[in-house]
Design a protein around this nucleic acid. Structure first.
Lengths: 246, 246
DNA sequence: TCCGTCAATATCGTCTGACGATTTCGTGTG
DNA sequence: CACACGAAATCGTCAGACGATATTGACGGA
């Protein structure tokens, strides 16, 4: 819904939001990429909720793109596990049960620890230190503001900064951050205030270790962060993980 | 009462729904998926080499599908880092330089170690043990046969078995196995016989630890395996990593 | 009344054809 | 021989169409 749909066809594409992730030769994002980003953003902001049914005709109208481009985007998101496609029945925002979330954490943790170690080894310039500290401060601010969409955006930016500084671009490809956004969106609304604040404080510790060029501490800080998240997941009530009865 | 009866009817149909869903889940792959698999298989077999130019008209003719479906597949492969798309200039099979390969190994290693640990913890039935041992034996046979395509296929099957037994499906999503196929295809032709045999022997050690339910040894075996691969990469001559053409 | 059968509808997967935008390259001209 | 210009090649996107399948609601019989 974020699109005010001034649009019509052949928009000027002056939409230069400087998507830094583009490893492409500076070309504009494709229509499918814009749709993917819009949907991911919608998930972070709560406009799309897990389990929601996505209709192609509806989305093509609302996003002002053709069915082909939309299908490319949905296919991409399905490959990343963000939506699930059912033949003849449409696309749904994926829902994660408790086991999937814990599995996801087990998978993400070693990658995050590697990313933190590399960032700690590689954080040499003032600009890099500044960037990490700003990212951490931004997360903190969003948490205090209780703005979920903003928090999830800035959490993403934090990881992006960490990976960027670490200098291992394969990590960016492998880390299932979008899928994590999905699970964060699911639990963010029902975890307790204490859990939320505790979680947010973890980023500050990781940042401290990174800017001090202490890979061992950075690794440990990430481990603690994930241990805390696992504890939170175990404490959540069953209704946090909707079982889909299509 | 009315609502109650309605729900009852739905419940009664639950069995049928499950059945239908199960059947549906095993449905045919989409055209785009078939194309992706064909291209990946072609890379493993050597029919497509890194740096090769992929023309849409040519591929649509050879694969017998429409441009739309082909583009879906190429987009998918591009997201996985298998091909790179250049606006107005076509798609190319990606090439990996030495740093990218080492970064890829750094990223894959912790995931492979996690997968091996989980498999070792979870390998409880004879069928599972048999599957792992068969996968390892198959790799060995393909190595001795010097059949590169077969070796890469079976290497993939080995990882699939390990992940399957481990029971963490998020791992399957996150592990950049296809991208590793790419790098394997690049180096497989020029590494020495000793390197090749040494590498193949690693799978046997990993398998042994897994079937003996020894997660610590499994983790160590994977680590050694990756250390060996890194050594091989460092020993390779520069021409193994083509600098970007054009 | 309740249940099974059957047609209408909704939705997806795929194909074909078209148009504009941009790069690449061959050819003609000075 | 250098340079400019136009044709060809190629990609990104769109619109419309067709068949296949699931869902749904109506109809008739026990």
């Amino acid at each position: 819904m974020a699109t005010s749909t001034k649009k019509a066809r052949k928009s000027a594409d002056a939409d230069d939001m400087m998507d830094a992730k583009a490893v492409n030769d500076g070309s504009v994002a494709s229509a499918a990429d814009r749709v993917s980003e819009t949907i991911l953003q919608g998930i972070r902001a709560g406009a799309f909720v897990p389990g929601q049914h996505l209709l192609e005709p509806d989305l093509t109208r609302r996003l002002g793109i053709s069915r082909g481009s939309l299908r490319e985007a949905l296919k991409h998101l399905a490959a990343a596990g963000i939506v699930t496609l059912n033949r003849f029945r449409g696309a749904y925002i994926s829902t994660l049960d408790r086991k999937s979330v814990l599995d996801l954490l087990d998978t993400l943790e070693p990658l995050a620890r590697l990313g933190a170690r590399l960032a700690a080894e590689n954080c040499g310039t003032d600009a890099q230190r500044k960037r990490m500290q700003l990212a951490a401060a931004n997360i903190d601010a969003a948490t205090k503001e209780r703005n979920r969409g903003l928090y999830l955006d800035r959490r993403r930016q934090f990881y992006d900064a960490m990976i960027d500084i670490g200098g291992n671009m394969e990590l960016a490809r492998a880390m299932p951050l979008s899928r994590t956004d999905l699970f964060r969106a699911q639990v963010e609304t029902i975890q307790t205030e204490r859990q939320r604040m505790l979680h947010a404080s973890g980023y500050a510790k990781i940042t401290k270790a990174i800017v001090e060029n202490d890979p061992v501490s950075a690794d440990k800080a990430v481990k603690k962060h994930f241990d805390g998240t696992r504890k939170t997941i175990h404490e959540l009530p069953p209704h946090a993980f909707p079982s889909l009865e299509i």
